[in-house]
Amino acid sequence: MPILREGELDIISHSVEQTQRLGARLGALLQPGDVICLSGDMGAGKTMFSVGIGRGWGTVIPLTSPTYNLIHEHERQADHKRLYHLDCYRLSGPEEAEQIGFDDVLNGRGPVILEWPEHIESALPKKRLWVELRILEPTRRNFVFNATGSRYEELLKAFRESAFGI
């Protein structure tokens, strides 16, 4: 786990289960308005990591792939707060993001997870946590976290402490 600089984290997950556990660590730390971008090829583990985030955050209904419906809006029992899970694969640009109510989602009512965020890059807030997922071997995945903005640097620091104790 080389720490390149503040605001960056480079790790390897060895299994789907580990990917979900890492997601859960991150999910437990999320606050309304947080934007988490998950970028990577099909099969890289974006949805598996999202499932973990949802579990850690505490959704009533477990997260599943939002590819078909584009936006999944989840609630948690404890405080009825919302978490948004988006798949931008089928969006062709920022105009379409607007069409599906992306602005509403970003209004800070809940944390937002985006898969295929590069499809609507110019519509994304500049401050965010960007995660690049890569397939290394059948079950091994490389995660590179990049935080932009003080909130996300703090979030990444807290995640590192929670997941790795350092």
């Binding site: 590819t67 078909y68 584009l70 694969y89 089928r90 969006l91 062709s92 105009e95 379409e96 069409q99 599906i100």
Partner: peptide, 8 residues
């Protein structure tokens, strides 16, 4: 041609 449903 897009390989899926396009929302707009």
């Amino acid at each position: 041609e897009f390989g899926g449903v396009f929302p707009e």
